[in-house]
């Protein structure tokens, strides 16, 4: 079936299987492998992308559900030398160890800060990132980075 969607400001017209997942389109068809597949069971959040202004787990979105959607992946946030403030904060606070969860963590963190309307504390960040698992258990620095970036977004 035909799928039209915009990913990182680029419009795409694709021929996809009806049972394709959004994450398969992003990684396979579009080659944007910054979005990771950790569990493939909707739990870990490594595949989180922004779709129509909301953080979603792209392993749990059918391609058809992304019809005409605007999607932003980690590749669309910034570039070396011109990073998003959340990326800069993750770097400055060493908010990653192996880095596998980082793309999803950053997308979720940006969504959290946008919705928080200036009211974020440590507990709210921990609660807000409940859908993203870091198996290195490196949450301490992630929370610090998100709180630091919140002041700069």
């Amino acid at each position: 079936m035909k799928l039209s969607l915009t990913v990182n400001e680029t419009a795409h017209e694709l021929e996809v299987a009806p049972n394709a997942l959004l994450v398969e389109i992003i990684r396979g068809d579009l080659g944007l492998t910054g979005t990771h597949v950790g569990c493939d069971t909707s739990q870990c959040g490594a595949c989180t992308v922004e779709m129509d202004g909301r953080a979603v787990k792209s392993c749990t979105v059918l391609a058809g559900q992304a019809q005409d959607a605007r999607v932003t992946t980690i590749e669309g946030l910034g570039a070396p030398g011109n990073l998003h403030p959340m990326q800069t904060a993750f770097q400055a606070h060493h908010a990653l160890q192996c880095g596998f969860c980082t793309p999803g963590m950053i997308i979720s963190a940006i969504d959290l800060v946008k919705r928080a309307d200036g009211r974020l504390d440590e507990a709210a960040v921990r609660e807000g990132l409940a859908g993203n698992l870091c198996r290195c258990t490196g949450y301490h620095n992630i929370v610090e980075a998100v709180l630091a970036a919140a002041g700069q977004m």
Partner: peptide, 9 residues
């Protein structure tokens, strides 16, 4: 309910 991504969908 669930986590933020679940509540978004």
């Amino acid at each position: 309910i669930g986590d933020a991504q679940v509540r978004n969908r």
